[in-house]
Amino acid sequence: MSRSRRDLVWIPTFAVLVAFAVPWPLWGVDRVVAGLPVWIWWHVAWLGLCTVLFSLFVRSGAWERGMGRQPGSKSESPLGGDRQ
């Protein structure tokens, strides 16, 4: 039931992931790198980073703790998959 204090760090992490998926620091930059504008590469790399961090979020158990649940607890209710 107790939520790990360290999990709170995910809130700013998500905020940063969303905010800088847009390459704001490259506003107005027009360099072309490897055939594409450099800010497109930023975005591509950033979405890759998102998948890595999302996977960490899930595997660390913060996914369950964030909803006030114990990681590894059986998620299905007694009704199971056949709820009416």
Binding site: H43, L47, C50
Partner: peptide, 17 residues
Amino acid sequence: PEWLIVMGTLDGVLFAV
């Protein structure tokens, strides 16, 4: 091509959250 950034951000990241 900035539309890629807009859609990628909203769909790939914000929607995921």
